[in-house]
């Protein structure tokens, strides 16, 4: 079942071209060159309910505009978009109550008050009943280890703690559709892993559909199975992350941890090298080769995010 459907979706806006130099600035005072920017061009796409989808692209590709169109902040210039059976541009209360958004760099927490106060405010705004709210808040703070921080003024929290509270704010009303913009920006690896576990858990328990934009490819490899890649307002790729490699014909790298210091790869097509005690690096051309691992001794398999960095930079640059 599709939760988002975009049909010939476009968004244009008028901007100005600034002339350089002092003379140019003077000329600009009287007459400016108008240019029409096609931020999003004729997009056709669907997102299935319960999926975690990565929305990728270089700066200025149109990701932000697309999220604004999906959340109803912007009105499409042409085409249609339907999210959870609603047209976002009407910004109906029913629709807004069913979505959540977290912007890594735009806080919704009240700076001078403890996070509990913002959450209590959101409880009123989203009309969450008290028992649901208490139960959910307890669960969410426990998942992110924030129980002892909830009564501390936001301004005294660390960046990681604030980001985690931002996440709680965006899911406290149990939205069906969650938009995340750079959810791990500027935070340490431990906190990043907590956030990944948290998002995977709410996706599993509540079936929350998550649209994620991030320049940190680790976010994508850890969370999303599907990606939409944008360039100049258009989709240039839509599909599974693992299929991306076909586009660049590059091997996939995995970091393997084992419980015995023995090479766990028994296949012939790939290459597996020891990188440390009970740690190996596997290079294969296809994810199917993972079937040739001795899972009796493999304790974890982690896809290498730097591979995706390489693939994406190749795609973005159009090479």
């Amino acid at each position: 079942m599709n939760i988002i459907e975009g049909e010939n979706l476009s968004y244009d806006y008028v901007s100005f071209e600034k002339k350089s130099g002092f003379k140019g600035s003077l000329k600009d005072l009287f007459k400016r060159e108008k240019i029409t920017v096609n931020a999003v061009k004729n997009l056709n796409f669907t997102v299935e309910k319960g999926k975690i989808v990565g929305l990728l692209g270089a700066n200025g590709a149109g990701k932000t505009t697309l999220i604004k169109l999906m959340t109803g902040i912007l009105t499409p210039s042409s085409g249609k978009i339907n999210c959870i059976g609603h047209t976002p541009m009407f910004r109906e209360e029913k629709y807004l109550s069913r979505i959540g958004m977290m912007l890594g760099q735009k806080s919704q927490l009240v700076w001078d008050l403890p996070a509990r106060d913002t959450l209590e405010l959101l409880k009123m705004i989203y009309r969450i009943n008290t028992s649901d709210f208490t139960e959910r808040l307890e669960k969410l703070t426990e998942m992110l280890s924030l129980e002892s921080k909830i009564n501390i003024p936001v301004r005294k929290l660390s960046l990681g703690e604030r980001i985690k509270f931002e996440l709680i704010c965006s899911v406290i009303h149990n939205p069906e559709l969650l938009f995340l913009d750079e959810p791990t920006i500027g935070i340490d690896i431990l906190s990043q892993n907590k956030i990944y576990d948290f998002l995977l858990e709410i996706n599993r328990i509540y079936g929350t559909t998550i649209i994620l934009t991030s320049h940190n490819t680790k976010d994508i490899t850890a969370l999303a199975k599907e990606v939409l890649i944008m360039k100049n307002g258009e989709f240039i790729y839509s599909g599974e992350v693992k299929e991306l490699r076909i586009l660049t014909d590059k091997d996939i790298s995995y970091t393997l941890s084992t419980n015995k210091d023995i090479n766990p790869y028994i296949g012939e097509k790939g290459k597996c090298e020891r990188t440390g005690y009970c740690r190996y690096k596997l290079n294969v051309h296809s994810a199917d080769e993972l079937g040739n691992l001795n899972f009796k001794i493999v304790s974890s398999v982690q896809e290498d995010a730097s591979d995706l960095d390489y693939i994406l930079s190749t795609i973005y640059s159009g090479e």
């Binding site: 109803g72 807004l96 958004m101 912007l103 919704q108 989203y126």
Partner: peptide
Amino acid sequence: HSGRLSVQLIRPI
């Protein structure tokens, strides 16, 4: 100018 208007606009208020 802080971009927080987006946060306000997606709230059902």
